[in-house]
Design a binder for these strands. Structure first.
Lengths: 194, 194
DNA sequence: GTCTATACATAGATAGAC
DNA sequence: GTCTATCTATGTATAGAC
């Protein structure tokens, strides 16, 4: 059973865009690597931007799934935080293949800060992540398994915030301890148990 | 008195690289905008990479100066944090010309996470920023104007960390409240006065 | 140091036969 | 849907006269 052409293209693009960045990955390379004819590519994606759009959606969904499984395996906030950092660190072990958050990378590639269209697309992705964390924390609160002083949505936002910060710091310095530091920072943000 | 050719090139590059990103700014555009002959450009900068290198140094120095002046006008940690965020917000008022941290932008443009050379260059810039904050916080501690539970270097690192995180979140969502949030987050990290 | 002209590669995208 | 060939623009960089 052969893989549909479109799927082959997208899969290849997801890998190459993440490894090399969007602007350093040409259409020609994607076409060659996915073993597809040039005209076939343009049949499915009228322009490179359309492919980039599709990849953004996929990256967003992939991370959302990771957050979901992270939540599923964590019974409380402390465990969530530890598992979270553990996963990140595990992903960096093979340091050559880790390049940070694919969504943030893509956002920086575009570099059009005033484009409202772009803003909405990325904003939707971030919201979808925050929603998952949000729901988890809210559940903990209802079950009385958490200090009620926590502002749910705010904590969800801040977790993503400090995560993105750690990625940038790692990219800037190569220092992986910024990820370890996430545990302490997250605990400070959660505050003392009530 | 006419400006040296090299300075004109660098100044133009600093502006264009920041506005458009490195890979969306061609040598030709820089040459045209700085009103210099092509051969003159290559006389001063054998390749684009050399110009990029010079710009990184300049960006780093510019931000370092901003941090220095921020420190100079702040007598305590609380004031520093407030002034810091106030300055960022002021810079975003004209939203069309703000594009986040020029050093982080440049780092994301390069996209070569395993290149040790690049890592060292950026790391040096971040260290120079941390050094300034470090010295300031250390002084406050010695003067007894701060809770001594603070780990100086760690706090300096974390301030840069959460700042970079806020920039990314802003870039991803267009939401400027992530910068306001820096005040609360920073205070949590500083902890209660002893 | 500056000028014009140009080389050379790669980018994104299209044409037209099959 | 696929194939090869090609268009056109742009990118980095160099040559050679002044």
């Amino acid at each position: 059973m052969k893989q549909p052409v479109k799927d082959k293209i997208v899969f290849t693009a997801l890998v190459l865009f993440y490894e090399q960045g969007i602007h350093h990955t040409g259409i020609n390379q994607i076409i060659e690597a996915s073993d597809v004819a040039k005209a076939s590519f343009y049949h499915h994606f009228p322009s490179k931007d359309d492919l980039v759009d599709e990849c953004l959606r996929q990256y967003g969904a992939i991370i959302a799934d990771q957050i979901r499984s992270l939540v599923a395996e964590s019974g409380d906030l402390d465990t969530l935080i530890r598992n979270w950092v553990a996963r990140i660190k595990a992903g960096i072990v093979d340091t050559a293949s880790y390049h940070g958050c694919p969504v943030a990378n893509m956002r920086f590639s575009l570099m059009l800060d005033s484009d409202q269209n772009i803003r909405e697309k990325f904003s939707a992705v971030i919201d979808s992540w925050a929603d998952i964390l949000d729901a988890f924390i809210e559940t903990l609160k209802k079950d009385g398994r958490i200090a009620h002083t926590i502002v749910t949505r705010q904590l969800a936002r801040r977790m993503i915030h400090i995560y993105q910060g750690a990625v940038v710091m790692w990219k800037l310095t190569g220092d992986t301890t910024y990820f370890d530091d996430l545990i302490d920072i997250a605990h400070e943000l959660v505050g003392p148990p009530k």
